[in-house]
Amino acid sequence: MDVLSDVVASLRSGRPFANREDRQGTWHTPFAPFAGAGFHIVLSGSCRLLTQDGAPLTLSVGDVVLTPHGTQHALEDLGHTDADGFTALLCGAYRLDRSQSHPLLATLPEVIHLRSQFGRHRSLHAAVSLLGSELQDPQQGSVAALSTLLDLLLLYILRAWLDDEADRGASGWSAALADPAVSTALSAMHEDPAHPWTVEELGRKANLSRATFARRFTQLVGQSPLAYLTWWRLGAAARLLKESDTSLERIAAQVGYGSQYAFANAFKRAHGISPGRYRRHHADDRHPTQWHPETGLTA
């Protein structure tokens, strides 16, 4: 599995939520802070996004906004700059498991604003179009379609942001995923966490010397290769504990630990709780209900 797919899988908890919102005249819709990520898409008209710390952002048709940290914000009219003062929005939210959040999430800004640009991010705008159609005209299978499209939307937003950051020559995770050597090593660890990886072997996969690889990986990812591998293994184990009845012994083997005892000790150091207690604590997560944050999404 590639890194970005794993990032999205590790972030989400429960079902995402989306709704079409039509506004006209003078309006102001606040969105309280919450433990998730929110998004807004302008289907028609225009509006303004307000945050506590940043300058107001003017949003136009086709613009996409993601608030990956659930930051408090608001949307409001521009003072009837359109002929009829009508604005149609697609608003929604994802519930995120912050305890399992990937380091990439921490590098995201408070607000991601992707402007509508002809020829840019075609997959994202295709997903937006399909999502809008399903919400405007629900049919048989729409519940399944919406869930899939919302997952795609989150993936495409993150991919578009990473691409834009790489084009601007940014460092960090956008540079890490764009770097062939580091990306190859990351993919290898994600694809086979049970393998007894060494820095030297990962360096060979990346076609770099051990020292050069370790230095480049740490600089871009923010962790050493083996520290990241440990984090990834224990994060994968946490998801298996929450989502399956797989035995602790088998989970230990799947994520690269030679014994259940070694796995339990490593897991407790990372999560502050034993694997068994972690599983019992998250037993209800296997049957998530429709999540509707009290953020004014259906004001």
Rank of each mutant, 00 (worst) to 15 (best):
H80Q: 13
P109K: 00
D63I: 02
G70W: 02
T58D: 14
L89M: 14
L89E: 13
G92I: 10
V64F: 03
G85P: 09
R122Y: 12
V111S: 01
A106N: 04
T67Q: 00
L108V: 00
V65G: 03
D53Q: 15
L59D: 07
L66V: 02
T81A: 11
L75C: 07
A83L: 11
A74K: 05
G119V: 11
L89C: 11
Q72V: 09
V64A: 01
V65W: 01
L57G: 01
L59C: 08
Q72G: 06
D84N: 12
V65F: 03
R48W: 10
R120Y: 14
L114N: 02
G85R: 00
G79R: 04
A88P: 07
S116C: 15
P103I: 00
A106K: 02
D77T: 11
G79Y: 03
P56W: 08
Q52Y: 06
G54P: 05
G79L: 08
H73I: 08
L59G: 07
Q117M: 15
L59V: 07
H69Y: 01
T67F: 02
T71W: 00
Q72R: 08
D82G: 08
G62E: 05
A83P: 09
H69S: 02
T107D: 10
Y94W: 14
C91K: 13
G79W: 03
C47H: 06
Q100L: 14
C91N: 13
P103K: 03
V61R: 13
R95H: 11
P68W: 00
L105T: 02
G54W: 03
S99R: 06
T51V: 10
H102I: 03
L114H: 03
C91G: 11
R122A: 14
A88R: 15
E76N: 10
E76K: 11
L90M: 15
L105A: 09
Q117R: 15
L78D: 14
A93C: 10
T67L: 00
L59M: 12
E76L: 14
T58M: 11
L105N: 00
D97E: 10
T51C: 11
L114P: 02
D82W: 05
D97R: 04
L75T: 05
A106Y: 03
V64C: 03
L57C: 08
G92W: 10
T107E: 14
G79T: 07
Q117K: 14
H69L: 00
L90V: 09
Q72Y: 04
A74L: 09
T51D: 09
A88Y: 10
P68L: 01
R122E: 15
G92F: 12
